[in-house]
Design a protein around this nucleic acid. Structure first.
Lengths: 161, 161
DNA sequence: TATTGTTATACTCTATAACTATA
DNA sequence: TATAGTTATAGAGTATAACAATA
């Protein structure tokens, strides 16, 4: 349990992260906004999955996920095959083009970060990664790359009907 | 200079911060979205200023700042008095109502963070604050609470005419 | 002419709610 | 009836560009 002043500063720091995110977003190609990147990355990390699972990992509503997925599917970066176990669903899978796009994106991110963070040590970056991962955990987000124990009360990311 | 894998993870962590920001945004009253909070906080920390300076601190375009400022001014949280030195500008200043609103917001943030981060130590929060501050610095953002040395090449936050 | 600020327009990301198809 | 997914609509945040007033 930390002090009031620390929390005030943290809320400031978090709201200021917008500038950092915009800095990273600027390096993306116009056809591939941040939402698309997130879809591609999660499909690579976790393998093929249904849209509901993806929404959970993204920690956004399924309706949002549906639009991001439509965007990347239109560009051929993923395909959607019927789920044999449940015909309401389709299985999302990265295509070869998607994998290629992802490699290109990763290259851009790494280049940009290497430029911005040239004076950061290995340990600094590790520490920041670890703290951010823990922060997301504390906020109840269970997205990669910090997958954890499944919770007994699995919350849905769904608009309540 | 860190390794490729660390940069890839960091870009992931940063994009995942959206969930944390949404978690914090949900505690705000409907009349006072995050953009308004940022304006109020900066006016409290830095004192009265013009809109151009505020845009710089917010690290967003002046057009965006103008809208946020209009929002908080309409609600009486700031006032705008003509700048005697330059009649194109007005000086933005927190009102008593604004200060009150800010106290209420601060309370909400602290409560929320204390809840989310109950198992974080003092030192953990300090460390995260320090790393986030440094991260913003590395991305060239000069917003509070990590004000630093002024740069000789003061970049504008302005749409290029 | 250049600068400060405002406004119009457009785009991304998000949530809520209504809807379709299947379970 | 309930669930998986889609679509329509709305709102916040942002940027670009055109504009007004002043320097």
């Amino acid at each position: 349990m930390a002090a009031r002043r620390q929390y005030e500063e943290l809320s400031q720091q978090l709201s200021a992260m917008g500038a950092v995110k915009r800095g990273l977003a600027r390096i993306l190609p116009p056809e591939c906004p941040a939402g698309s990147v997130a879809v591609l990355v999660l499909l690579e990390r976790h393998g093929p999955m249904r849209i509901g699972r993806l929404a959970e990992l993204l920690a956004v509503d399924m309706s949002v996920t549906s639009r991001h997925v439509a965007h990347v599917a239109e560009r051929g970066w993923i395909d959607r095959t019927p789920d044999p176990d449940d015909r309401r669903s389709r299985i999302l899978r990265l295509t070869a083009e998607g994998t290629e796009q992802l490699a290109e994106l990763s290259e851009r991110y790494v280049q940009a970060l290497a430029g911005y963070l040239e004076d950061w040590s290995d340990a600094d970056v590790d520490q920041l990664n670890a703290l951010l991962s823990r922060l997301r955990d504390s906020f109840g987000d269970r997205r990669a790359p910090s997958a954890r124990l499944p919770h007994p009360t699995e919350q849905t990311t769904r608009t309540p009907a």
